[in-house]
Amino acid sequence: MGKFEIEVAVCSFLVIIIVLCIRLIFALPSLKHHQIKTSPLKSIEDKNVMVLLGSGGHTGEMIRILSGSNTIPKVHNLHFITSSGDSTSLIHLKKFINETNIETKTESLELPRARKVGEGFVSSIISTVKSILFTFIQFSKLKIKPDVLIVNGPGTSVPICYYFFLLKFLGIGKTKIIYIESLARVNDLSLSGKLCYLISDRFIVQWNKLQKRYPNSECYGIMV
C-alpha cells in the first residue's frame, strides 16, 4: 500500500469516527440540555410500554411503583418481561395484575445478567458485550419495539437498555428509557445504574444526596 492509500484510509477512518461521534451526541439523551418540553404527539395510553422485572427486591420495588400509578392501568399495550425461571417475579406480577385488573402481556425470556457478582472489570466488560449480543438475538425474535421502557436496575437491565439505545443510535428505534434506581442505593449508583446513566431518557434516584452526585438524575423522594 502506498503513502496515498494509507492517507485515504486514515482520513476515511477519521470521517467515520467523527460521523459516529456526531450521531452519538444526537442519540445520547443525557446531552440534550436544551430540550424543549412539548407534550408528546402520542399519549401514553396509546404507546407501547415495556416493563422489565428483575430479581427479588427489584421486582418488589417495581410493583410498588406501578401499583400506585393511575396511568399504567390505562396503557393499552403493556408488556412485562421476566427472566425465565424467575417464578417469584411471576407470582408478584400475577398478584398485581389481579389486584389492578389490568390487561397486559407477559413474556418470559432467557435473559443473561450483565455481570456476575464479584467479577473483575475486564471480564465484566466482556460478559457485558456477550450479554448484549445475546439480548439482541432474544429481542429481535420478540419483535416488540416499545415506545417506553421502564427498568429499575437488575443486572438484566443493562443489555436491554443498550440494545434499545443501539437501535436508536442506528436510527431504527425510538424507545425512551426510564431508569429508576433502587431505594437501597443511598450513596452511590449501582453498577447497572452507572452503565445506564448516560443512555436513559429519564434517570430517577430516590435519595437527594445521590441526585447531587449525578446532576442528570432526578429525585422526587421515596417512590416505593
Binding site: 406501578l66 400506585g68 393511575n70 396511568t71 426510564i178 429519564r202
Partner: peptide, 10 residues
C-alpha cells in the same frame, strides 16, 4: 403522581 407525570411527559 411522580411516576404518572414522568409517563405523561415522555
Amino acid at each position: 403522581s411522580v411516576i404518572d407525570n414522568i409517563l405523561q411527559e415522555i
